[in-house]
Amino acid sequence: MEETTNLSPKADASLYNGQPTDTGSSCPSAGLTSCTPSIQENKGGVSVENVPSGNKQWFVLRVIYGRIIKAQTFVEAKGLECYVPLRYKEVRKQGKKRIITEPLLPSFLFVHASAEQVDYLLQDKNIKAFENRTLLRYYYDHTSHCENAPTKNPPLIIADTAMDNFIRLTSIHNPHIIPVTSDNIKYKLGDEVVITEGEFKDIHGRVTRIAGQQRVLVELFDGYLVATAYVPKNAMKPYVEH
């Protein structure tokens, strides 16, 4: 059963409530184009908190479906920063409209840490003992391969600029922000723009039409996108990367 939360959102919204298949072969250490040897199993009692934290990056981890809050609690208990985007949803109870939150991407957790820290985290025996299944594991970048192992994919890493844009969008309390995948879009993605006014100001993405409305799509990775609510043409301008 999918978890629902009324936590005060550090972030809001999740993308797609499906479970994309992860067929990538394991590349033991993180990196976009290189594949370095995995850290050996911790035999000296070193905890995640004591692992070098330099060169932090945003890693995408797969979570057992419906266990995103348990995964968040587990990671934060290790002293690591993570992000769970939430979706704001309007519901009616006893004739009154309420806004609730639920995980936008119930199969994904975003962890901001070094490659060494994530490796140590995923070696924790409690992860593998969870309900006889692995609570957390790498999600792999299927668009690239490890330099030293060309048949394997490296763990997926999200660039800071892309993650900042995604967090900014999914932190807006608007129930009309919707999750989509590239399969749902029957329109050619248009020009890349930045929104200049309103609650979506400074969000940048590509213009498209969904459900008969002009919106701006933010793509985080591998065809997973979030669409804003309706944005008028005069509230956007061409985006120029600095």
Rank of each mutant, 00 (worst) to 15 (best):
P155T: 03
V111H: 01
L105S: 15
D119C: 05
Y120E: 03
L136D: 07
A113F: 03
Q94L: 14
N148I: 03
P155K: 03
D119N: 15
A115K: 06
N126G: 01
S114L: 08
L104R: 11
N132K: 12
Y88A: 10
A149G: 00
Q123C: 01
A162I: 12
N126M: 04
A115F: 03
R137C: 02
R87W: 09
E116R: 05
S114F: 05
V91E: 14
L135S: 05
E90I: 05
Q123S: 00
I158C: 03
F130G: 02
Q123H: 03
K97W: 01
L135V: 01
Q94F: 14
A113V: 07
Y138D: 09
Q123L: 01
N132Y: 13
L122K: 02
E90P: 04
P150C: 10
L135C: 02
R133F: 11
G95T: 11
Q123D: 04
A129N: 14
R87N: 11
I157M: 12
R98T: 03
L156W: 01
K128N: 15
Y140K: 07
Q123Y: 01
D141C: 06
L121D: 01
T143P: 02
Y120M: 10
T143R: 14
A159G: 11
Y88I: 01
H142E: 08
Y120W: 07
R98Y: 13
H145Y: 15
H112S: 06
I99S: 11
K96D: 11
P155I: 03
I99C: 08
Y139T: 07
I99V: 14
T151M: 10
I157N: 05
A162R: 13
L135Q: 04
Y138N: 10
R137D: 12
R133Q: 15
E102K: 10
E147I: 02
L105D: 14
D164G: 00
I99N: 12
A115G: 15
Y140D: 06
L136S: 07
E90Q: 09
G95K: 08
I158N: 02
L136K: 04
D124Q: 12
N126L: 13
H142V: 11
M163K: 09
P155A: 02
V111D: 10
V111R: 06
D141N: 14
Q123E: 04
T101H: 15
F108G: 00
K89F: 07
L104F: 14
A129Q: 13
I158G: 05
G95W: 08
D160G: 05
V91P: 06
P106M: 10
P154M: 05
D119F: 00
D164I: 00
P103Y: 09
P155F: 11
S114A: 11
E131Q: 12
K96M: 13
L122Y: 04
V91L: 10
A129E: 12
L136M: 08
S144E: 10
R92D: 12
N153F: 05
S144G: 04
A113G: 06
T161F: 13
F110W: 14
I100N: 11
F130I: 01
